[in-house]
Design a protein around this nucleic acid. Sequence first.
RNA 1: GGCGCGAUAGCAAAGCGGUUAUGCCGCGGCCUGCAAAGCCGUUUAGACCAGUUCGACUCUGGUUCGCGCCUCCA
Length: 460
Amino acid sequence: MLKIYNTLAREKQVFTPIIAGKVSMYVCGMTVYDYCHLGHARVMVAFDMVNRWLRASGYAVTYVRNITDIDDKIIKRAQENNETIAQLTQRFIDAMDEDSAKLGVVRPTLEPRATEFVDGMITMISRLIDKGFAYAASNGDVFYAVNNFADYGKLSGKSLVDLRAGERVEVDLHKKDAMDFVLWKSAKPGEPSWDSPWGKGRPGWHIECSAMSAHYLGQHFDIHGGGQDLQFPHHENEIAQSEAAHSHDGELCQMVNYWMHNGFVRVDDEKMSKSLGNFFTIRTVLEQYDAEVVRFFILRAHYRSPLNYSDQHLDDAKLALTRLYTALRGVETTDEAVDWQLAPAASFKAAMDDDFNTPLAFAVLFDLASELNKTKSAVTGSLLKNLASVVGLLQRDPDTFLQGELEQVCQSLDVDALIVQRNLAKQSKNFTEADSIRKTLAEAGIVLEDSPQGTTWRRA
RNA sequence: GGCGCGAUAGCAAAGCGGUUAUGCCGCGGCCUGCAAAGCCGUUUAGACCAGUUCGACUCUGGUUCGCGCCUCCA
């Protein structure tokens, strides 16, 4: 029985889908004006893991992850780069797709772009005005009136009174209340714009998710996810918009049953973020580390815990993953459905069902690796590989992982020939030469491993 | 200031009111020509102070420290 930590309830709850056997899930994706950093990688990988586990559990999942392709930063960046917004966003969408594919992220069912749904947003804003939850200001902006939404703050645990007391931003004089937020921004000269009942303008940030989630998943759906920093104000505002817009006769319509938020990636115990400038892009990290190592690194911590980034931690993750692949090396495995009745599989399932406890599930994988090292059993090896596939790991040929891309390693050295040469030297008890060859290879970053079955090698 | 989260061994990271988490590192042994890998064994825990309990790392209260949100942010 799957339990999910629901931010809305601040506790783990048994997951019950709205429609038996089906799950509707929406996750806030990226604003595409730059390369994705490790924080973005965590969202993609964490919810990919959720998506995979739901499917492995037998659910038919509709997974929507949006792309924000119009906003202030995009407009500014396009101007700086002297390119069109379409060029800029397409470039970074392509880069994002590349990065996520490398990280083993299965594509969401749908990846709608904000600019494709402006009509739907305008319709929703109109509805909010009609129902008295929004108002057009004299300057052409449209604001959401938080005072008219009784449940405002229920997700983030904030009260309007406290929020106003802590108000740190300059208050827009067009707003009726300092906490009102913008649904529609009137266009400034030179900015991209759409026609609307309130004049030319463009949508505010929050409304896109309300419009797109309702379009694809309906007014009431199962799971909504995103980074912890979106809890407030973004998700709070989504709730306010959707539940008010979808209300009937003053009765609010619950938008989402389970809200999930993943923890931050940190650097030196500080949140990794654009504004702090302490971020590492996915592609930078992938220059140094194997993508599967990065995926393993992300999933070896619980998705809600903070995750500290450092080379040491990545190195550690690499060694741990190497242990798993080493155990699988030379074992004939078969791809087949996991028998969840088996003790290790049941433990793995129990861990995953407990709010996606990947660290505990991974412990099962390591236990299997230990057993595999002793028995070299094809059954154990297959179970290890097939369990790992559920979280998107261990699907490569072990030699490919352990030896890396051949062309990278062996440009100047013929490893196989040197191994033959060394084995001849060993046979004639010429250990000086044998050790010399091993040393040559070690200096090239190649470790030799002798076994009764012969000599194999891997990258250090 | 308001609201919230966390503090576990050298590092990372989980579960659990009493029974080995797990990975890396260290140490001893086996194996090996020597290594590596592997196997066997093993040293390091639960910020601090109280309380509840037969028994607490695990529950309750307090203290200290760290982090996050309250502005764009995954």
